[in-house]
Design a protein around this nucleic acid. Structure first.
Length: 255
DNA sequence: CGATTTTGACCGGCGC
DNA sequence: GCGCCGGTCAAAATCG
């Protein structure tokens, strides 16, 4: 699997003439979603799942046995973590803080952080997540009518533009496991696309992050996922997945 | 039985 | 002002 990761990363870099984030997702302008025609293809489903599986399982077994036999070299580790960063928690991970908390201040870290920097936020201004949308809407909807709340979500002011972040991946599954739990709250047919757009909200009580998932009209094998807002709670699955990697980094940083 | 999904209705923004 | 469209709500249905 080491080799696979390298193939992934190197392959993307070599094959792409664009300065796009390489693996595994590609930022696209949003909205509207109009990836350039020459956009390199996202990795296949197999590649995607293989990496996830490798990162989650392989080091785990190692860590469970005493003292961390290194199964990933430093380079692979950094590459894997960098790849995992935008994958697991696209816009929200503060890797610096995360790694500092984990007391990982080895020489490997700076490079890692750079690589792991989240894909560019496509639209950020004003407020962050947190409470937002719901609040203004709820009062309105209650006053309004029993039925639908309406676009009230954004009502309060104009478009409450929270940090938004879109990426694509080639997958047969619409829903990628990003480590958080999501609850679907809507689905709409969208113009010029035979595939509907699905709306999800983070199920964490205090978290108001949303995401939209839809297939690209031009290439229905590609899923476009748009995150909106910033999680205000830890991601259990992320930590679970990363802890073996962090342990290995910690181990490496001793040298 | 609680959590999640489905689905039709509702509402605001925007373009004409 | 009107109609289209996207985003959200919430009741009902479904799932685990």
């Amino acid at each position: 699997m080491d080799s696979m990761e390298n193939q992934q990363l190197q392959g993307d870099e070599s094959s792409s003439s664009h300065a796009l984030p390489s693996f595994p997702y590609f930022a696209v302008p949003s909205p509207p979603y109009a990836p350039p025609p020459s956009l390199p293809l996202p990795p296949s489903d197999d590649q995607h799942s293989t990496l996830i599986t490798a990162l989650r399982q392989q080091p785990l077994s190692a860590c469970n046995n005493d003292d961390l036999p290194l199964q990933l070299g430093p380079d692979q580790l950094a590459a894997a973590a960098a790849a995992l960063a935008p994958m697991v928690l696209p816009p929200m991970v503060d890797w610096s803080a995360l790694l500092q908390q984990a007391s990982l201040m080895g020489p490997l870290v700076p490079g890692l952080l750079q690589q792991a920097a989240p894909l560019e936020p496509l639209d950020q201004s004003g407020e962050n997540d947190g409470g937002d949308a719901g609040s203004s809407s709820s009062s309105k909807e209650k006053a309004a009518k029993g039925g639908g709340g309406g676009a009230a979500g954004r009502s309060g002011k104009k478009k409450a533009s929270r940090p938004r972040f879109a990426f694509q991946t080639r997958s047969v599954n619409d829903i990628l496991d990003d480590g958080y739990r999501w609850r679907k709250y809507g689905q709409k047919a969208v113009k010029n696309s035979e595939h509907p757009r699905s709306y999800y909200r983070c199920t964490h009580h205090t978290c108001n992050v949303k995401k939209q998932v839809q297939r690209l009209a031009k290439d229905t094998s590609i899923v476009v996922t748009t995150y909106e807002g910033v999680h205000n709670h830890p991601c259990e699955k992320l930590m679970e997945a990363l802890s073996p990697i962090l342990k290995q980094l910690q181990f490496l940083s001793q040298f």
